[in-house]
Write a protein that binds this DNA or RNA. Sequence first.
DNA 1: AAGCATATCAACCGCCTGGTA
DNA 2: ATACCAGGCGGTTGATATGCT
Length: 324
Amino acid sequence: MRRTYDDLGEIKKGPWKSEEDEVLLKHVKKYGPKDWSSIRSKGLLQRTGKSCRLRWVNKLRPNLKNGVKFSAQEEQTVIQLQREFGNKWARIATHLPGRTDNDVKNFWSSRQKRLARVLHSPSRSSPPKSQKSRIASPALHKVPTFEAPKRSSSTDGESSVTSPKTLSCSSSYCEPIKMVSLPELMNPTTTTNTTNMLSFDHNQPLCQLEYTVRNPPEENSCNEPPNPLQHVPCLPQHPPPPIDTNDIFTQLGDPNFFAGFYHGYAPELAQFPYMTPGGDGESGGSCGNQENDDSMIFGPDTFIDDFPIDMFDNIEPFPSPSDW
DNA sequence: AAGCATATCAACCGCCTGGTA
DNA sequence: ATACCAGGCGGTTGATATGCT
């Protein structure tokens, strides 16, 4: 008969004390990072095995970068891997030496919160003084990007693609679909698969918008009617004009903001209608099994990836968290 | 200096999966 | 076959730190 938690007295919760850490470290040194529950069953600590494991993984494990901000490289890695894997923080963390899933998760959610707060603030068209002051402060640099969930993932390592949509294009090859409101754009449903990525920087006004659009007929390799979701063919061929970012909050509150943005950055995209997550804009025929073909929706087939390589040469790079 | 808003981080909770009695 | 438990993971929360007015 195994002993149950009830046999072992009250469970201690809350912040760990250094004495507890020492006990935990001793145990790991002796037995290795396993048998967490035995720590309690032996009466060494009144912590659950889960709590012990978490403490070890997040704080006591060797070579952790505790208290070190994410470098620009790490930030890019997280963005890239999140795009690839979704919210698989543990998996992403394996690519970041010294970082835990908790680190990655906190890093990401912090960014999400920041932008969500900015964009969902009812006063964003007339931000409070405190927010306005932050626009020019280093703190605003902490809002470099926002990326909505791209896909739903049911099992580790296998993401299921459900409904690739969010923004669509209406250039010469693109069909009008639906309008999407800014709140929808910035707060898509969790099963929305397309990435909406906005980037903010007072030096680098905007913007990374990543979405899928319909294919130009001549690029459509299947025999069905020409509208499989495909990458954006509309590319800006000129440097972006300056934007007055001192008033970015006002601009974000303007329903014509994105249209204005495209007029400046990519005139071909200026008349894009946006379509809502969950809309039926993708209902048109597609080649093969679209649901399992990430390459049609993500990866290189994204707006940002189709920009000319040197298009950002004239602007400053994103601030990295290490610069915040 | 006080008060407020926001950012960061540590830890917990609930769910899931696999192993074992 | 079933129940229980340990471990792993993602989401969430609460405490604390920081910055601004």
